[in-house]
């Protein structure tokens, strides 16, 4: 059986009613997370209801974009073809100053320089006509 993905294009997020505000904000260079109307908990990834208080009401709220590197890996192939062509491919887990964490890529930093705790700032990378991914650069 094939170990190749169906496409050598970079896989892109499917944009749904739940996630559209996040990706639209990224498009306009803004990082947003959900803030629970019931208890104020900031959450990422988005959910229908708050895990802390159960409220179904939440508003997408801008955050500072300040973050620190929480952990990371770098992997050689086998990977999906897009990433395999650019391997070893690093992936970072960052912690926003406001608390939530997200997976991302670090831009403009060599893997050898990655250090847990290093200070970062959100940036935005237009991938195609529709999609902007959130990346992080040195603060």
């Amino acid at each position: 059986m094939t170990q190749q993905a169906m496409t050598s294009q970079r896989p892109m997020p499917e944009i749904t009613p739940m996630t559209e505000p996040f990706w639209s904000a990224a498009r306009r260079r803004e990082l947003v997370v959900q803030r629970c109307d019931g208890c104020g908990t900031l959450r990422f990834p988005p959910e229908v209801a708050c895990y802390a208080c159960g409220s179904r009401r939440a508003a997408w709220t801008p955050v500072s974009g300040r973050a620190t590197l929480y952990s990371w890996t770098a992997a050689p192939p086998p990977l999906l073809p897009y990433f395999a062509d650019r391997a070893p491919w690093p992936v970072a887990l960052v912690q926003l100053a406001e608390g939530p964490r997200m997976f991302t890529n670090l831009a403009g930093i060599a893997v050898e320089e990655y250090a847990i705790g290093m200070e970062l700032q959100a940036g935005f990378e237009d991938i195609d006509g529709e999609t902007t991914l959130v990346v992080f650069r040195r603060a």
Binding site: T19, L79, L80, M102, N105, I127, L133
Partner: peptide, 8 residues
């Protein structure tokens, strides 16, 4: 959608 596009 918040993971695989970043290569995870």
């Amino acid at each position: 959608a918040f993971e695989i596009p970043y290569g995870l």
